[in-house]
Computed example of a mutant assay.
Amino acid sequence: MNLLITSREQILAELTEIDSFLNIIMSENAEEAVQRGNDLAVYVARTGKLLADAKYWLNEAVKSKVMQTLVETAKNAKATATAINALVNSLCREERYLVDWCERCNRTATHQLSWCVTVISKAKEEMKMAGMYNNKK
């Protein structure tokens, strides 16, 4: 199977760009909502892929020979499962951070896309109401 896994560096670069976009405050202008919604739909898809790639890198880090050796050493030292998990989480903190950031960006983009739909629906309803008012004159 030929996997097209995004590098950790590229994930970080893309998340930085996406996060900047997500931190822009949108007006209630319907045209802006349409354009932003188009961009957000792409970002929802992309952050989903980046999330899968970040999880791949996290899984690679967890299963590495170094990690296996550390787990064995911890077991031989009679460490608890909680202590071993804390050690693994600490050693994989950068990969876990990318996973968490991807999830946050994906959720944020999804919620903002819903907001765009709401703004567009509101504008449609206002146009409909304005048309009804104009027809009664």
Rank of each mutant, 00 (worst) to 15 (best):
M1L: 07
N2F: 01
N2S: 05
N2R: 06
N2W: 03
L3C: 09
L4W: 00
I5N: 06
T6K: 08
T6D: 00
S7N: 00
R8Q: 15
E9V: 13
E9M: 09
Q10Y: 08
I11P: 01
L12V: 06
L12Q: 12
A13N: 11
A13M: 09
L15S: 10
I18N: 04
D19S: 08
D19N: 06
D19P: 02
D19Y: 02
S20N: 13
S20E: 15
L22K: 05
I24G: 00
I25T: 15
I25S: 14
M26K: 06
M26I: 11
S27C: 04
E28C: 07
E28N: 12
A30Y: 04
E31T: 13
E31I: 11
E31N: 13
V34L: 14
V34F: 09
V34E: 15
Q35F: 02
Q35Y: 04
Q35P: 04
G37Q: 00
L40M: 01
A41V: 03
A41R: 09
A41K: 10
A41H: 04
A41C: 05
Y43I: 02
Y43W: 01
V44H: 04
V44G: 04
V44D: 01
A45W: 01
R46H: 03
G48E: 07
G48T: 11
K49N: 10
L50N: 00
L51C: 05
L51Y: 06
A52R: 11
D53I: 05
D53V: 04
A54M: 07
A54S: 14
A54D: 05
K55E: 12
K55C: 04
W57Q: 03
W57K: 00
L58W: 05
N59K: 09
E60T: 00
E60V: 00
V62S: 01
V62Q: 06
V62D: 03
S64A: 12
Q68D: 10
Q68R: 11
E72C: 10
T73R: 13
T73C: 01
K78N: 14
A79Y: 07
A81E: 11
A81R: 07
T82Q: 14
T82H: 10
T82A: 15
A83W: 01
I84G: 02
L87M: 12
V88T: 06
N89A: 15
N89I: 07
S90E: 12
S90L: 10
S90A: 10
C92M: 00
R93K: 14
E94H: 09
E94W: 05
E95A: 11
R96L: 14
R96T: 14
L98V: 05
D100A: 15
W101R: 15
C102A: 15
C102D: 04
N106L: 03
N106D: 06
A109Q: 03
H111C: 08
S114L: 12
S114H: 08
S114M: 12
T118N: 10
S121V: 01
K124R: 11
K124M: 11
E125Y: 07
E125D: 13
E126Q: 13
M127R: 14
M127L: 13
K128N: 08
M129Y: 08
G131K: 15
G131L: 11
M132F: 11
Y133F: 10
N134F: 08
N135H: 10
N135G: 09
K137E: 09
K137L: 13
K137R: 13
